[in-house]
Amino acid sequence: MILKFLASLKLTLVILAALGVAVLTAYLSETPTTWALAGPLAAFAVNLAAAVVTNPVFRHQTALLVFHLALIAIILLITVGRLTYLKGQLELAEGEVFDGQLTQEERGPWHLRQLDALHFSNEGFSIDYAKGVRRGVTRNQISWTAPGGEIQRVVIGDQTPFILSGYRFYTSHNKGFAPTFIWYPRSGSSPVLGTVHLPAYPLHEHKQAIEWTPPGGKIPLWVMLQFDELILDPAKPSEFRLPTKYQIVVRVGDERRELKQGEAMRLTEGVLVYNGLRSWMGYTVFYDFTLPWLLAACTLAVLSLAWHFCCKFLNKPWDKPT
């Protein structure tokens, strides 16, 4: 009796309506509302499973049976995917090696974070811009060490991600300039290279300054990149590049210095030496091991539904259906 209720087509209609309401709620809500979808999807899985078990129509309509089983598989895969996914963002200056640190991160409760074991290096990029500063193709060369020890290189960008241990790294539209400094701590410990990721360019063209604390230090500095030349010309096609004539301004409290390459600035916690200007690239990272299975289940669902309708419609001509 309960199984028949759970399998009823009327319940399917209620669930479809509830799913619609849940989607609208999640869409209109400003806070994450995965829970709103979880209830109707769980009910949908139960409804489908009960229908498959109790409804005799599935015993002689194989296509319909496959369709319903594929729908159940999709719901289960989405559930597993949401529990184990990872989505994040990171930035790497040219020559910098990824060490597992993300600037933003969102993940499912069952995600086994393996990012710390992954390493690759940003070896620079080029981006074409069309007239009107319209972004074109991104080509970013990256390198990593293969399990055999040899250095591998690949160009990624736009639709081409770098895939490592199931993590998919995509270049993002965020990129900019990165002044680099060598920091000699007063404590006498080894000098460290520090990169300052200035706000994204050309998105924040007129805000090329940021507060930055040297590696291991406590006192924040204010670092600014000043240049007058036009990097991306709206009047003609151009390419992202570093400015050729620029000034690096560093300010600590009331002290303000303009540094040229190799020049040093003495601070309370150590000595800061300007090393040069590089670029930085922003990446998004995505992990969901269910992706190929989800695609397979979706394809199976749509093909079986098409097969079901074909069987149903081919028996009667389209110009004279009864």
Binding site: Q159, D288, L295, C298, V302, L305
Partner: peptide, 28 residues
């Protein structure tokens, strides 16, 4: 019949759109 064909093509549109979105924006 036409609505049935419609749901097949809309489902395919959503699936292929998800493949495109994964490539284009790193999420399906």
């Amino acid at each position: 019949r036409f609505m049935a064909m419609g749901i097949i093509f809309e489902t395919l549109m959503l699936i292929v759109g998800a493949i495109w979105a994964q490539d284009a924006w790193g999420r399906y």
